[in-house]
Write a protein that binds this DNA or RNA. Structure first.
Lengths: 233, 233
DNA sequence: GTGAACAATAAGTCAGACTTTTATGTCACA
DNA sequence: TGTGACATAAAAGTCTGACTTATTGTTCAC
C-alpha cells in the first residue's frame, strides 16, 4: 500500500509535498533550492529534480532571481494521485474527502450506465461476484472483507464503462471507501439497503438496463453524500 | 494560449511528451537517459529532470540497469493538463475528445446543481451575462464571440459549484468547446435550442432550482454527446 | 520624478567522477 | 540436465564545482 521511497529524490518529495499540500508553506512563500538541498541533506541535482516534479504538479513555480514560489491551491493539479494521497494524509483530509465524494457522485452513475451498455460477460460475472461477496460479509463485523468486495465492485464498474478517465478513478474511489470504513463506521455492519442496491446494480448492468443502472448507482452515491453531511439542510 | 517553453528542460518535455502520448514509443519501449540527452543535445542533468517529470505523469518508469521504460496508457495520469494537451495535439485527439466529453456530461449537470445552491449573486449575474452574450452572438457567423461566452458560461458554473475538483475542469471544458468549434461546426450558427438551454440554466441557478439546473445541463450535455456520435444506436 | 545603467542574486546549465542497484551470463556442483 | 552461488557489466543515481543567464532592485544622472 505504502509507496516506494526508492531514490533520494522520492524521499524529498514525500516530505516536501505533504508539507506544501498541508498548507505548511502558504501560497506565495518563497523557498530556495540551495537552502532546501541543505535542509534535506541532498545535492542540488536531487533537489532540483524534486522541485521540477512539484512544478509539474503546479504546487510551486520556479523563477530566476526569485526562487521557488508556492502556488495557491487553485493552481494545484488536484487530480494528481500523489497530490490526492498527500492531502488525504494531512490536515486537508476532510475537505479532500468531501471533494472526492462529490466527484464520485457525479461520475459513478454515468459510469454504471455506460457499463450496462459495454460490460463484457466476464465483467458482468465479476460484478455479480463482488456484490455477492458484499452480501456474504455484510453481517457479523466482517468489515474488512466487505470493504474488499465493495472496492472491487466499484472498480469493475469504472473499468467496464470503457472510459479511460473514469477507469483511472478506481484508485481514488478505493481510497475514499477505505477511508470511510477506517474512519467512522468500522463498528456497525453496513446498511442492508446499500448492499441490496449493489446487487441490483449488478443485475441492471447484466441486463443492459442503462437507465436503471444509472439510477440505482445514483442512489448509492446519494447515500455516500448523506454520510458526509454534504447535503445541507 | 501556447505554453511557455522557458528552459531547456521544458523544450525537451514538449518534444518527448507528445511523442510518447502519440504512441510513437509503444508501451514497453526502453529509452536510455544518456542517449536521449545526446539526441536532444542537452546535458544529462536537464534530461534527468525531464524524465523525472514524465515519471511523475506515469508516462514512463525509470529503473536501474534497465533504462526508462514507456508505460502502458492504463498507467498514465490522464487528468494531467499537460498530458491532456499533448494528446489533444496529436493523433489521439478524437479519442481524447470523446473521453473528455463523456467526463463533461457526467460532471457538469452535478456542478450546475451545486451552483444553483451555492452560487453568489455576482456569479449569478455573470452567468446571465454570459448566456445573454451567447444569444447576442448566436446569429450571423459570430462563432468566435459565441465561443468566448460559451466557455465563460461553463467556467462560471464549474467555479460556482464550490467544488475545487470541478473548478479545475474549466480549462478542459474550454479546450473541448474550442476544439469543437474550430473543428466541425465553424460555418453554421449554433442550434437555437442550445442557446435557449443556457439561458434557462442561468435562470434556474439564479432561482436556486437545483433539480432544474441539473436537468437542463444534462440536456446540454446530451447534445454534446450526440454531436460526437457517442450515443450508439 | 523618470529612466537608464549597474550590481547582486538565485535559478539554469554543463561536465566529469563516482556509487549503487540489478539483470544477466558463467561456472561449479549435484 | 538443472540449480545454486558468484562475478560482470550496464544503466540509473548521486555529488561537486564551475560557469551562464535572466531578473529584480538599487543607484545615479538628468
Amino acid at each position: 500500500m505504502t509507496d516506494r521511497a526508492r531514490g533520494l529524490h522520492s524521499r524529498v518529495l514525500e516530505s516536501l509535498g505533504p508539507a506544501i499540500t498541508a498548507g505548511e508553506y502558504p501560497a506565495g512563500s518563497v523557498l530556495r533550492t540551495d537552502e532546501l538541498a541543505q535542509r534535506f541533506e541532498v545535492s542540488r541535482s536531487v533537489m532540483r529534480e524534486a522541485v521540477r516534479v512539484l512544478e509539474s504538479m503546479r504546487l510551486v513555480a520556479s523563477r530566476r532571481r526569485v526562487g521557488v514560489t508556492v502556488l495557491p491551491i487553485e493552481q494545484w493539479n488536484v487530480y494528481d494521485p500523489q497530490v490526492i494521497r498527500w492531502r488525504l494524509a494531512g490536515a486537508e483530509r476532510p475537505r479532500q474527502l468531501r471533494s472526492l465524494t462529490v466527484l464520485r457522485s457525479a461520475i459513478e452513475p454515468v459510469a454504471a450506465g455506460l457499463a450496462a451498455r459495454y460490460a463484457t460477460a466476464a465483467q458482468c460475472a465479476e460484478l455479480t461476484e463482488c456484490a455477492l461477496g458484499m452480501v456474504a460479509h455484510s453481517r457479523g463485523h466482517q468489515l474488512e472483507g466487505y470493504l474488499r468486495h465493495d472496492v472491487a465492485f466499484h472498480r469493475v464498474i469504472l473499468n467496464a464503462s470503457g472510459n479511460e478517465m473514469f477507469a483511472r478513478l478506481g484508485d481514488v474511489v478505493a481510497e475514499v471507501l477505505t477511508g470511510r470504513t477506517a474512519h467512522q463506521v468500522m463498528f456497525e455492519d453496513p446498511d442492508p439497503p446499500a448492499v441490496t442496491l449493489h446487487l441490483k446494480v449488478a443485475e441492471a448492468v447484466r441486463e443492459g438496463d442503462v437507465a436503471r443502472a444509472e439510477a440505482l448507482t445514483r442512489e448509492i452515491a446519494l447515500g455516500a453524500l448523506e454520510e458526509l453531511d454534504i447535503l445541507a439542510p
